[in-house]
Computed example of a mutant assay.
Amino acid sequence: MRVLGIDPGAKVTGVCVIDGREVVASVDVATAHDLFPAHRGYIQEVVNQAYRLLDSLQVQTVAVEAITRPSWHMKGRAAADPTALLATAEVLGGVLGFAWPVPIVQVQPGKNGSQPFGTYPPSLITPAERRAPGWQLKTAGKGKLCHQRSAYDVARAGLRLRAEMVHV
């Protein structure tokens, strides 16, 4: 089953289409506009890019990473700035509000894009990330393809959720 994973972000959104564990296509959609409010053109481009991939690659399910209620205080320090969370919520709302022609599932956040490099397909690891000895065991995180890796994990989780829904 082909699944389109979306990792909504305030400045960059990752989109990845998988078939099993194989990456069929992946792309980042970025905005050069202010963080908040999220620029309408950015939200539209996220949905447009995702729909183009869905339509051209015969995707059967869309999976999008949800957001969780933030903890506004961190270890006694001042309240966190909610700007990025609000902008991400706007992108998420645009994705959820679109009339997708296939089922859509929400994937809970939690280490999406932060697995060991060796668990990701080669197309989601840059040559620079492969240079360090033992790179396969190092945890992915920041980097050029971090949003696409997160979208890959979201798609994989969406594949599992969709399978559970079908078998219930």
Rank of each mutant, 00 (worst) to 15 (best):
S56K: 08
D153F: 04
R156F: 13
P82S: 06
Q106N: 09
G118M: 05
G134R: 10
P101S: 05
P127L: 01
W72T: 10
Q49P: 02
D19A: 03
D34C: 02
P37E: 05
D34Q: 12
V46N: 00
W100Q: 06
A63D: 05
R149I: 02
A163I: 11
L159N: 09
E164G: 07
G97D: 07
M165N: 11
K138R: 15
A80H: 03
L92Q: 04
E164S: 14
W100G: 09
E65F: 03
R160M: 10
L85E: 07
G94W: 14
V29H: 00
Q148W: 04
A66C: 04
G118S: 07
P133C: 03
E129S: 09
Q106T: 14
C146K: 15
S71E: 13
V23F: 01
K144W: 10
P121F: 01
N112H: 15
H73A: 12
T68S: 11
R131A: 13
V91I: 12
A163L: 13
L86T: 02
W135H: 07
L96V: 13
R156W: 12
E22D: 11
A151W: 04
R149S: 06
N112P: 02
E129P: 09
Q44M: 03
T119D: 02
C146E: 12
L96M: 13
M74A: 11
A140L: 05
P109Y: 06
H39S: 07
Q148F: 05
Y120T: 00
G158D: 11
R40T: 13
G20N: 05
G158E: 13
D34F: 02
V24I: 10
L145T: 09
L161D: 05
T31E: 04
L124N: 01
A84G: 04
A78R: 15
A140I: 03
G143N: 07
Y51T: 09
L124Q: 02
T126S: 09
R160L: 14
R130H: 04
M74V: 15
I125K: 01
V29I: 04
V29Q: 00
G20M: 02
Y120P: 03
S71P: 00
L145G: 07
W100F: 08
P82A: 09
G20K: 04
K144E: 10
G158S: 13
H73P: 00
P70N: 01
Q136M: 09
Q108P: 01
P103M: 03
S114I: 10
Q49S: 14
V107G: 01
N48F: 11
Q58P: 01
Q49G: 04
G143H: 06
T31I: 07
A25F: 03
S56D: 07
Q44C: 04
A32P: 02
D153T: 01
H73D: 10
H73S: 12
L96G: 03
V23Q: 00
G118P: 10
A157G: 06
P133T: 08
H33M: 11
S71C: 09
E22I: 04
C146I: 00
D55K: 11
L53G: 03
T68F: 09
Y120D: 00
A140Q: 04
D19N: 08
A163Q: 15
P122K: 01
K144R: 14
L85R: 13
A157I: 06
R77A: 14
H33A: 15
L137F: 14
